[in-house]
Write a protein that binds this DNA or RNA. Structure first.
Lengths: 350, 350
DNA sequence: CTGAAAGCGCTAACAT
DNA sequence: ATGTTAGCGCTTTCAG
């Protein structure tokens, strides 16, 4: 090994390492990429050379030939029209839900040396930019978390032929892979629990009814309650925000003052509902039991702590990443959906 | 323009566009990169060729020669030791604060065609990976949001010579650029407001006292209260979480039952404090006034809505991105800090 | 098991 | 104003 050859200025390249180790570029490349058929002694020499030179591979050069970037896009998308209202994108990120998704994705991808590029797609321009960005080969594929039913991005993605996976089933059938939770089963868990604890006059606060998740939670809840002999379940529609939960609960109380149990379609709304109940002097769970959905950080911030249906977001996000990787590695892989089972987390609100 | 030349398989390259347009690669490159000195007629021909071929530039090839990736790392970092506790990284993302940072960064960077790569650096390995990742040229620089005072990453980054900017002043002096808010001035705003509304027995809940932001908010509050003739201000330390806010308020009430005003060092803790006050039957703001810090989404979720010191997080994040870009473009640029002035947002809690 | 050589697609001197 | 030509640093046949 030639210890003291002059290195070119700038950061060392394969060439430099090869010269120091007294071998060819190809050999250095082989040891770096862990390809066998390299003499152990030479391997050692090369490793030495790598550390004495302080060599790090140049990802651009590598990508140019392998056609892989080691990055994927993590797209948070809305339906559009939000551009004028906010000076900054990504307000939606205030929901702790997205942090959980990000955590799940990174947990799976990071050990594999892959990293997510964060993109918001709240306007038509932003959506077009996402597609262009992927086409330029800045990322090998995309995972998409969509907040609105009318979001056109899933279709754009499916049409582009780029590897992509959605969080949640699209509102209209689109040939694209996705992961989701069994919303109906989760709602049934809530219904069974409320009935089991003796609630007789049960109502629900749903999410926005144009999104499949909300529809399914509502339908699942009503079906389960019907099976328990409660054919009519009053419902007020919310939009998954804290404030809408308050408003919905307020209305429910006005229209059905005697409710003794309520299933709220997500924890953030349930938190708002709890505030309203307390304000009206209703004791939870004694006067009225409340079950949420998600088991987000909001559930623990509630008083009393919220009994809720656990949405395994991190596991789902990890699966989404895994699915994306198979689509990237096997371009012809068939469209797949993976459904997770929710569980009930019993705390004190019901 | 030669409409019907055979295109190579795969996606079209500059070469293909050039052939179709009947010009050289260099000319096509010039029009794509908006370099003048190109005949308008030829420009038009080239644009035509680009759209007929469906050409999109290959970013890897471009990066290889320009030494720019058009990506920066957005690093959320902790002090370490969190690896065993959580199966997934980024739990900290539950705090809406990070969503605001991300929004501010993207708002500034996206129009410039730059995107953030999300990285969590909660363990020593993860931190090393961040450095390696940057060295490999996967990103042109990093913005760092650190959650703990003992985080070693700022120092690693400063030592590496890679372009980087911090959110918030590091606990110990490090030669690295950062943006921050005038914590003392913000705390003074809170103090002045509490005094002006007639509070006489004032206390505070601070953040973790090993981080400069907490120290400064506490010191600024105490100084301002002293100036108003209140030399002794009781303080209970929290850690910026909802739960710690509850615990702190509980303790404050036990030790100083007669407090009539409290400055809580962030909104999440203030939310917890408000819950405790209500539980103890204290009316807010009549019996006791509460002022928070941040003006995060939690402030509006409080009952009553929280009077708080607005932390201009999005603007600060945008500035952080701007600063990083200047460091990337001018490698020798001097270390800089930018301090933002907070404002008081008066709602109903004080 | 190792080396030589041919590009990957693009930009940027340098010529013209 | 446009074309020619050299690479950027790496992987990967193909020989040996």
């Amino acid at each position: 090994m030639n210890e003291d050859l002059p290195l070119a200025s700038g950061s060392p390249t394969l060439e430099d390492v090869a010269r120091v180790a007294g071998v060819s570029r190809a050999t250095v490349s082989r040891v770096i990429n862990g390809i066998r058929n390299v003499d152990p002694a030479i391997q050692e020499t090369v490793r030495q050379a790598i550390s004495t030179t302080g060599y790090v591979p140049n990802q651009a050069a590598r990508s140019l030939v392998t056609r892989r970037t080691g990055a994927i896009a993590l797209v948070v998308s809305g339906a559009g029209g939000e551009s004028e209202e906010h000076p900054f994108p990504g307000q939606v990120f205030a929901d702790p839900f997205f942090g959980r998704v990000a955590g799940g994705i990174v947990g799976f991808l990071r050990p594999r040396g892959i990293h997510p590029i964060l993109m918001f797609a709240e306007t038509p321009e932003a959506r077009a930019q996402v597609i262009t960005y992927l086409r330029q080969g800045n990322a090998d594929g995309a995972v998409l978390v969509s907040t609105h039913a009318e979001d056109p991005l899933p279709r754009l993605l499916a049409g582009s032929g780029l590897p992509a996976v959605l969080f949640a089933r699209p509102a209209k059938p689109i040939p694209i892979s996705y992961v989701d939770v069994a919303h109906r089963a989760g709602a049934k868990l809530a219904a069974d629990h409320l009935v089991a604890r003796g609630c007789r006059r049960v109502a629900t606060v749903s999410g926005p009814l144009d999104v499949p998740a909300s529809q399914d939670r509502l339908a699942g809840f009503r079906d389960a309650m019907a099976a328990h002999g409660h054919p009519y379940i009053p419902c007020v529609e919310g939009n998954f925000t804290h404030d809408s939960g308050e408003a919905a609960m307020e209305r429910l109380l006005a229209e059905h003052p005697d409710v003794d149990g309520v299933f709220v379609a997500n924890d953030l709304m349930a938190q708002g509902a709890l505030l309203v109940l307390r304000h009206h002097g209703r004791r939870v769970p004694d006067d009225i039991a409340v079950v949420g959905f998600d088991d987000s950080s909001a559930a623990l911030a509630c008083r009393p702590p919220l009994t809720t249906v656990r949405h395994p977001v991190e596991d789902m996000a990890a699966e989404m990443a895994r699915l994306l990787l198979t689509h990237i590695e096997q371009p012809g892989h068939q469209v797949t959906s993976v459904i997770f089972e929710p569980t009930l987390v019993v705390r004190q609100s019901a």
